[in-house]
Design a protein around this nucleic acid. Structure first.
Ligand SMILES: [Zn+2]
Ligand SMILES: [Zn+2]
Ligand SMILES: [Zn+2]
Ligand SMILES: [Zn+2]
Lengths: 141, 141
DNA sequence: AAATGATATGTAATAACATAACATTTTTGG
DNA sequence: CCAAAAATGTTATGTTATTACATATCATTT
């Protein structure tokens, strides 16, 4: 706890407020080509001092809140956001390859629109959508 | 094959081949207004002789294969199909109320179409889609 | 009827995913 | 500096799902 902290934000980081654990978790997700489970992340961060699942889940919760990470419900796994951060404008869909495990995050306006109208037609107040497409990617077809 | 098998289907059942456990599991799902976790189903079937999770999971696997039951990935829970059985024509989407836990299964052709084209545009061989809408239903808004 | 093979079921143990509860440290704002 | 708030560390526990192996049931073949 040095007296004269440089005190971040002098840099151009889009999300300067990330804490140590949050940054570590985000980094392993960004570096990974496939989605990672919370426990995989835990294993990858043992050397950085991680000991318990909660350290991972707490970081993930915050990162998801910031739109920097998304959860793939059908895999119980997590991916870094492909964009700067989705935040308000939610991701529309994920295409998940069952062979190479690659994930592509799509921001299809028309799809979001369609789902919005679908909900409206049923007087359903839409809060959050989960759209996950499983199959084989271009390379693995 | 056997000489004189009555060979089911003399009755009007859409899926005559259901085994005892499969029928029990299906019945509790049909009777439930909310989706049920596998362990809830297990508890509900203690009196019928169920003792272990696998009895439930095996029945669920078969029922899902037949299109009689669907899994809600975002809840880790299961619902009976609202139709006779989805089988080939997959369900398009589920609207899930966060208040009353009601689930409405939708078979929106246009949505299925849109997702199909989206996949095709990316040379993605689509096998299965998960679309789950979270929010508040008409009654709970 | 007896043997076979395929499917369904029973049971115990364990793996995988996630949260509760509480103590301690760090950060932040006055 | 100080108090409040946020983040972290740690243990224990809860929840969801699968592996492994034994047994039973039923249709076909001998
Ligand atoms: Zn995103
Ligand atoms: Zn692939
Ligand atoms: Zn259905
Ligand atoms: Zn409702």
């Amino acid at each position: 706890m040095g007296p004269h902290l440089p005190h971040a934000n002098s840099n151009g980081e889009p999300h300067p407020a990330l804490k140590k654990n949050q940054k570590l978790v985000r980094d392993v997700l960004v570096a990974s080509s496939a989605p990672l489970s919370a426990y995989s992340i835990l294993d990858l961060l043992r050397d950085e001092g991680f000991r318990a699942p909660l350290q991972v889940y707490r970081a993930l919760d915050k990162l998801m809140e910031l739109g920097l990470v998304h959860k793939l419900e059908s895999l119980n796994a997590f991916v870094a956001c492909s964009h700067e951060a989705c935040e308000v404008n939610e991701p529309a869909a994920f295409m998940i390859c069952e062979v190479c495990e690659s994930v592509r995050e799509l921001g299809d306006i028309q799809l979001a629109d369609h789902l919005g109208k679908l909900a409206a037609n049923h007087n359903f107040a839409l809060k959050h959508t989960t759209v996950e497409l499983h199959g084989r990617c271009k390379n693995c077809a």
